[in-house]
């Protein structure tokens, strides 16, 4: 369970990214955070594994208080149970897919083992299982830079699965993919969320994608949560409120003529 209690975040340069956020996310939920760019979506997601640090209020993740005292070894241990997926995939292109996935196991290995790159057979099997779960097992020994964008994002997803996480954070996971591929990747997220009961928190610019796959939507505007509820309850008036303007073509991935829109 993730609890935000009156959380605020002000960056060192004085920008107030989040104001007075209070939320409770239960294990196994699929949450989409939507809003304009710069509204604070990314900050909200990155607070959870302390990629950014809370400046006001309390954040408790699975019983652990995420504040300035969580650091060093404790922080690394905490992060092992939280996977993260990025917009730009962040894979090492020149190495094989399986090695990219195995990199997630490194944090659990002893220093010598990890420096020499001696993965156990269990680790390798776990990595292969993770690749199988996202449907690209046959690419395990290809070089990552030879894969398409969608396949690369799946590798990144497999990498987080190899961590055996309780929570997966996703920072604009499909924003740099084409609509069809984006749908496939989101389906993987959906399946993993359901089958493995892993909490997924994704910040997404594209409203249609968010509404289609998430059970719960959090709308942010100017650093404040202005909507928090089931995706079914989201309507056009609400979206207009969150975005502060009409929804344009840029905010949805499938254009109306694609027959797949809202």
């Amino acid at each position: 369970m993730i609890q935000f209690k009156n959380v605020g975040k002000t960056y060192p340069n004085g920008v107030e990214a989040l104001k007075n956020v209070s939320l409770e996310i239960k294990q196994g939920e699929f949450v989409a955070v939507i809003g304009l760019s710069g509204a604070g979506k990314s900050t909200l997601v990155k607070l959870v594994n302390k990629m950014h640090e809370v400046t006001l209020g309390d954040l408790v993740v699975n019983g652990i208080t995420v504040d300035s005292t969580l650091k060093g070894k404790e922080l690394r241990k905490f992060r092992r149970k939280i996977g993260m997926v990025f917009q730009s995939f962040n894979l090492i292109g020149r190495t094989s897919v399986i090695k990219n996935v195995l990199a997630a196991r490194v944090a659990d290995m002893s220093l010598m083992q990890s420096l020499l790159g001696l993965y156990t057979k269990e680790d390798r099997l776990l990595a292969l299982e993770a690749l199988d779960k996202v449907g690209i097992l046959e690419k395990a020994y290809s070089r990552a830079d030879q894969l398409s964008g969608g396949q690369q994002q799946r590798v990144a997803l497999a990498r987080t699965l190899a961590q055996n996480p309780d929570i997966i954070l996703a920072d604009e996971p499909v924003a740099s993919l084409d609509p069809i591929t984006a749908n496939q990747v989101m389906k993987d997220f959906e399946r993993i969320n359901k089958e493995l009961n892993i909490t997924v928190i994704a910040n997404m610019h594209h409203v249609d994608m968010a509404l289609k796959y998430a059970n719960r939507v959090i709308g942010i505007r100017g650093g404040e949560v202005i909507f928090d509820g089931p995706s079914k309850e989201v309507n056009e008036a609400l979206l207009k409120d969150i975005y502060g303007r009409e929804i344009t073509d840029e905010d949805i991935m499938f254009k109306p003529e694609d027959n797949e829109g809202l």
């Binding site: 399986i98 057979k121 292969l128 299982e129 097992l137």
Partner: peptide, 16 residues
């Protein structure tokens, strides 16, 4: 042997 992997769903993978 050490390069042969058996996945839980029955799939087999051979590491090159």
């Amino acid at each position: 042997d050490s390069r042969q992997f058996y996945l839980s769903n029955g799939k087999e993978v051979k590491q090159p």
